[in-house]
Structures are given as structure tokens and as C-alpha cells.
Amino acid sequence: MPELQKTILDHVEHVTDDVVSLVLRGDDGPLAPWEPGAHIDLELPNWLTRQYSLCGDPGDLSAYRIAVRHDPLSRGGSEYIHLFLQPGRTLSVSLPRNHFPLLPAAEYLFVAGGIGITPIVPMLRSAVASGAAVTLVYAGRSRPFAAELTSLYGDRVRLARPDFAALAEEFPAAEVYCCGPASMVDAAEAVFPGVHTERFEPTRRTFGPDTAFEVVCARSGGTIQVPADESLLDALNHAGRPVPSACREGVCGSCEVTVVEGEPEHRDDIGAAAGRMYPCVSRARSSRLVLDL
């Protein structure tokens, strides 16, 4: 099981009508270090685990800050946080993971939509501190932290809907980062070939028919049959080889496993590193996989 950190919910702040900011203070001393773009898994008292981008100051390890939008179609995570979670509650969080790292550059263009601002907030802080040229274009009906960001960064922040064609002409040499609704991310990718993106929902793609395969657990022993109508993650859990998971959609990375032999069929939106896969959505191209489990 992954290492967990114990935190105390220090306070909850309503930053917009539909977004709350949570400050999670380390209960046993400093929390694990992190870099801009990182996120954590938050274990909720209603037995759900959800992932949230860290939007505080990476230099302050006494606490983590996250922000949560109340989703009307919530599967129970955001609704619980908005309606029931109170300060003083003990909550376990994972070590930070980062699939959206900020790379060194002389100029940055950040584009965010709504709650997609959360991973961008610490990126802005780091980019400005580095001395780089920085511009944020921030759109959305709800803009959490907009007042805070304009106060800190002035005219570097544009509260406007992005015109990507115009931005491409204005910032031809910038390193571009985008996080927001799928339509915004798709538009950014169509104009900026090298854009760095993070999605909160999986990309709609078509794959071949699911087929059965077998998995060998290298460390614990045993072979597990994965039928065509069951995910690899569910097959592992049902066979007594539980793998932690959060999104179950291939966007958070919490269920990452190591592949020893065989060829995975990657269906995630993260871009699994060589020798890794995400069993919540990914399957096998070969008839057999050997996993480090």
C-alpha cells in the first residue's frame, strides 16, 4: 500500500459560490515536499478517495492547500466535502505525484478554465520567482482565486476567454500550459503542438474490442485471469491483490503498477512511462502480463 500522511483540516474557505479551498495541516510535522503541478489523493470519511491538485506554496510544508468545485453530478466526493466536511477532521492524504511538471523556460503562457486554475497557481508563483516572462489567460463562469492572482501579479493576469490563434501569434516562443474543460484543452492542443496539458476527464477515444488475458503476479505469486468484460484493476482487487485507485478513468495515476513482462495497451491520459501502466483503464496487447505485485 502507498505511504499515507495524516493531516488535520485546518480551515475551509468559500472562494466562489461553487468552490471551497481546504487547508490540510500536517499532523505529524512537515508534509512531503512537492513541485508545481503535483496532486494528492484525499481519503474521505465516506470511504471515497479523490485526487486534487495542490494549489498552495511549495515552500510551505506545514500544510497543503487544495480547492474543490461542487459538481452537481458528483459521485459523492465533492458533495461530501461541500456539505459535510468540517475543520478539525483528521484526513489521510497520499504523497504528492506529478504528471504535469513545470519545465524551465524563459517565457510562459498559462491558460486555465474554472477549477483548472488549481495546478496553475503554484506554477505562476514559481515562474514569476524565476524571472521568466509570464502571462495567464483565465476564463470561466467561476474563477476561484481570480482576485488573489490579479492582486499578486497585476497585468500578467488576463481574465478573458482565450483566442488561441491570437495567442499563438503573440507568444510564439512561450512554453504553454493549459488546464480546464475538455473543449479548452482540445483547442489548445490544436494550436500549440507542444502544449503541456492536464485533464480532469478522460479523452474520448476508440479502442479495439476488449479481450481476455492473464496476469502473473511476480512477487506474491499466482496467475489471474482477466475476462474481456472486467478491468484489470477489478480483476486484481477481486483476486486479493488490491491496488489503490482514485479516478478509475486513467487521469490521476494513483493505480500505477510496474510491468515486468508483456505488452500493455495504454488507454490512459497521463502517458505511462516505460515499464508502467494504469490498470483502471489499460489492458494487454499480449496474451500475458507479468506485474511487479
Score class of each variant (00 low, 15 high):
Ala168Asn: 04
Glu170Cys: 07
Leu91Phe: 02
Gln5Arg: 15
Val281Pro: 09
Arg241Gly: 07
Asp269Ile: 08
Arg199Lys: 11
Ile81Asp: 03
Glu79Thr: 15
Lys6Tyr: 11
Phe110Asp: 01
Pro227Ala: 07
Thr150Trp: 12
Thr211Ala: 15
Glu198Thr: 01
Gly113Ala: 03
Ala284Tyr: 03
Glu201Thr: 11
Pro227Glu: 09
Ser94Pro: 02
Ser130Thr: 07
Thr135His: 09
Arg161Ser: 13
Pro227Val: 13
Asn237Glu: 15
Cys217Val: 14
Phe213Asn: 01
Pro144Cys: 05
Pro96Gln: 05
Asp186Val: 01
Asn46Glu: 05
Ser220Leu: 15
Phe145Gly: 07
Thr118His: 00
Glu43Phe: 14
Arg205Tyr: 02
Cys55Leu: 09
Gly180Gln: 00
Val251Lys: 04
Pro2Cys: 05
Gly77Glu: 08
Gly208Glu: 13
Thr135Val: 04
Asp234Lys: 00
Asp27Leu: 09
Gly56His: 00
Cys255Asn: 10
Val68Arg: 07
Val191His: 00
Pro244Arg: 05
Glu201Met: 13
Ser183Cys: 04
Phe145Trp: 10
Ser92Asp: 14
Ala173Pro: 12
Ile81Arg: 06
Pro96Arg: 01
Val290Glu: 10
Ala67Gln: 07
Arg50Thr: 07
Glu249Lys: 03
Gly221Asp: 06
Cys247Gly: 05
Val93Cys: 03
Ala105Gly: 05
Leu48Lys: 11
Arg75Trp: 14
Thr206Met: 09
Tyr278Lys: 10
Val226Glu: 08
Ala146Asn: 11
Glu13Cys: 12
Asp41Lys: 00
Arg285Glu: 13
His11Ala: 03
Gly131Thr: 08
Met184Lys: 00
Tyr52Trp: 05
Leu293Val: 10
Pro242Cys: 11
Ile117Thr: 08
Ala235Arg: 00
Tyr52Glu: 14
Phe145Thr: 08
Pro209Asp: 15
Leu61Ala: 13
Met277Cys: 06
Gly29Leu: 08
Cys255Tyr: 12
Val111Leu: 13
Leu236Cys: 08
Leu48Phe: 04
Ala67Tyr: 01
Ile224Asn: 10
Arg267Phe: 00
Val260Tyr: 15
Leu124Val: 06
Ala228Leu: 09
